[in-house]
């Protein structure tokens, strides 16, 4: 087993993001910050009610928007200083598997965004757990695949039924 290096919050949890990524992030955050300031200014001020306008709803988000825009400028300047503007700036090493990430996100959205609320919750959960487990165990090869799929189906049904019993019957909570 390869040893995993312990993460220290003082050293930074992982390898830092690339300057190019920081520069793009800074640009996005700057736009968000400015948009928030603009919307905060456009909010009603309720001067007639308060007499002073000091309770205007836009004051606080406006302050945060200004701070976000300023901090994003600092982030952007720092990223440029570290080579983020260069055409061939340092590129962060890709970690993990983007395909696995996309699959997990897609299945999650299909389950929580589409199935839940339209199909009885325990069935939706059973289908999701089965699909998720089967999809991620598919790469383990054809050997014992049928057995793994049966296990995944049992885990799915078990999860759906257990969640329904524990949350709805035992703790009297409403399920979607």
């Amino acid at each position: 087993m390869s040893e995993v290096e312990a993460d220290s919050p003082f050293d930074g949890e992982k390898a830092p993001a690339s300057p190019r990524a920081d520069l793009i992030t800074a640009a996005v955050l700057f736009v968000v910050g400015v948009a928030i300031v603009q919307q905060a200014i456009a909010m009603p001020r309720f001067v007639e009610q308060s007499g002073t306008g000091l309770t205007a709803p836009g004051i606080v988000p406006g302050f945060y928007g200004v701070m976000l825009a300023l901090l994003s400028v600092v982030l952007g300047v720092r990223a440029i200083g570290r080579g983020g503007w260069a055409v061939r700036g340092p590129v962060a090493k890709a970690t993990g598997d983007g395909r696995r990430l996309g699959l997990a996100a897609l299945l999650g959205i299909l389950y929580a965004g589409v199935l839940v609320g339209r199909v009885p919750f325990w069935i939706a959960s059973a289908l999701f757990v089965f699909a998720f487990t089967t999809a991620f165990e598919w790469d383990q090869g054809p050997e014992r695949r049928a057995r793994r799929m049966i296990e995944a189906a049992l885990i799915g049904i078990g999860t759906g039924v257990a969640v329904m019993l524990v949350f709805e019957k035992l703790f009297l909570l409403r399920l979607p």
Partner: peptide
């Protein structure tokens, strides 16, 4: 692969 979908279901609840 078997634990995370269950966690996701619990998150939804």
């Amino acid at each position: 692969e078997r634990l995370m979908p269950i966690v996701f279901v619990l998150c939804t609840v």
